[in-house]
Amino acid sequence: MDLTFFGKDPNSKLEDCPSVWVDDATADLVFQGWKADKATEAECLKVGSIPDHEGVFRIPASMVDQIRKALDVAEERARVL
């Protein structure tokens, strides 16, 4: 699997900070983020279940620029798939 990296949270000082990629084969977005707390999960559960193979994550607003760039590339790649 090949992923195109778009960036890490610019406000984070840690190496393990939130990040965003685009999967080169599927054009899917791939996110690394902070695991949501129980209150956030409870709010999400109001609209449906969270299966064991899924998770709720927080992505900081400071990553909007990287996410926009990733979205543009994902959209372009999805057109040719």
Rank of each mutant, 00 (worst) to 15 (best):
I50Y: 01
D9N: 15
V73A: 01
W21Q: 06
K69I: 00
M63P: 06
G48E: 01
G33Q: 12
D52F: 10
G7Q: 07
V20N: 06
W21G: 02
F31M: 09
T4Y: 09
P18S: 15
E76R: 15
D72I: 09
G48Q: 04
L29M: 10
F31K: 13
D28G: 02
Q66F: 10
R77A: 10
E76N: 07
C44N: 03
E75F: 02
G55L: 08
C44H: 09
E43D: 08
P10R: 00
L45S: 05
E41G: 03
I67K: 09
G55D: 04
R68N: 06
S62L: 04
K46M: 08
G55I: 13
M1Y: 05
D52T: 13
A39V: 07
L29I: 07
A25C: 03
G48D: 01
V30W: 03
G7W: 01
G55A: 14
G7L: 08
D65L: 06
K8V: 08
A70L: 03
L3T: 12
F57N: 05
M63I: 14
W34A: 10
K38P: 07
C44V: 10
S19F: 02
A42K: 07
H53G: 03
K46Y: 05
A78F: 04
V80I: 11
P51H: 06
D28F: 11
I67T: 06
A61L: 09
K13E: 06
M63N: 12
S49K: 12
D28N: 14
L45F: 00
D23N: 15
A61T: 12
D28M: 06
V30C: 07
L71N: 03
A74M: 00
E15P: 10
F57D: 02
A25T: 09
W21D: 04
D16I: 11
L3E: 10
E76V: 05
N11A: 02
G33N: 14
R79Q: 07
E75R: 13
A42G: 05
S49A: 14
I59N: 09
W21M: 04
V80H: 11
V73Q: 03
W34Q: 14
Q32G: 15
R58F: 06
W21H: 14
D23S: 13
T4H: 10
P51M: 07
T4S: 09
E54W: 02
I50M: 02
W34F: 12
V20P: 04
N11V: 02
D28S: 09
C17W: 05
F5E: 12
D2Q: 15
T4Q: 13
P60R: 15
M1T: 13
P60F: 08
K38W: 00
A27M: 08
A74P: 01
E54Y: 03
K13F: 03
E15S: 13
P51G: 07
G7D: 08
V64F: 06
L14V: 08
M63D: 10
